[in-house]
């Protein structure tokens, strides 16, 4: 299955945000659910279970100067095996203009046994924009070894590299569950927080030694990174 969805946000001239485009196709449908102050709230409403290997889903987001959007998904997406030899893709690309704000706070991606999944995020943030970007990966459904999943995140700030990371789990990723990468934790994720006028806080490690606050080199941005025994604990580390 292939699907493309597109979201474009502008200021509405009264301090709020107007969604000038909000278009999707199954299984990638978008719903405006309301607003929190000036921030428009949008949900991605996944139709069936999936994605299945072979699916190709793309979401494009653009937030222009003065607009603010918060995007959620209604449920975790479960990457499942599908066509033999094929990969499922979920690509989210976003542009955030100066003075705009985007908060991408979806539910987890679950890498089910046998899956072959690529989740890709490409974000271009202008100087003076605000960004919150969360990615969470659960390795396998209950008590199951995951298939191959790759979480690839590329964020540029004002045309310069801010964050590049590729987290790979599954049989094709050597050592992924070992002590150098996840240490046996089935849940992992990160939360990127970029605030143009708030300098990043210094590094800090959660006393449990499984989560940390990491100020990035390329701008006033912090990456929260965590590994956890379950989705719930993971989320507790990655609440914006």
């Amino acid at each position: 299955m292939r699907a493309v969805a597109r979201l474009v946000a502008h200021p509405d001239g009264r301090g709020g945000t107007r969604l000038t485009e909000l278009a999707g196709e199954p299984p990638l449908l978008l719903r405006r659910t309301g607003h929190r102050g000036p921030v428009a709230e949008v949900y991605v409403v996944g139709a069936a279970a999936g994605p299945l290997a072979g699916d190709d889903l793309r979401l494009e987001i653009e937030v222009t100067t003065g607009a603010a959007v918060r995007v959620h998904t209604v449920a975790a997406s479960v990457a499942l095996p599908g066509r033999v030899g094929a990969t499922s893709r979920m690509m989210v690309s976003a542009r955030v203009h100066p003075g705009a704000a985007l908060h991408w706070l979806p539910e987890q991606t679950v890498a089910a046994a046998g899956c072959a999944h690529l989740a890709e995020s490409r974000v271009e943030v202008a100087e003076g924009a605000t960004l919150t970007w969360r990615d969470e990966l659960i390795c396998g459904r209950h008590a199951e070894e995951p298939g191959d999943a790759v979480l690839h995140t590329v964020v540029d700030l004002a045309g310069r590299p801010l964050l590049r990371q590729t987290l790979a789990v599954g049989p094709q990723a050597p050592g992924w569950s070992g002590p150098a990468v996840l240490g046996g934790a089935p849940a992992t994720g990160s939360l990127l927080v970029l605030h143009p006028d708030r300098p990043a806080d210094p590094p800090w490690v959660h006393p449990g030694g499984t989560a940390a606050r990491l100020p990035l080199a390329g701008g006033p941005a912090t990456l929260w990174t965590a590994t956890a025994p379950d989705a719930h604990t993971l989320r507790s580390h990655l609440e914006p």
Binding site: H152, T166, L167, A168, A180, V181, T188, T210, A212, T225
Partner: peptide, 10 residues
Amino acid sequence: PAAAAPLADI
């Protein structure tokens, strides 16, 4: 390549 390892950072 940008292969990441959360525990290496932590």
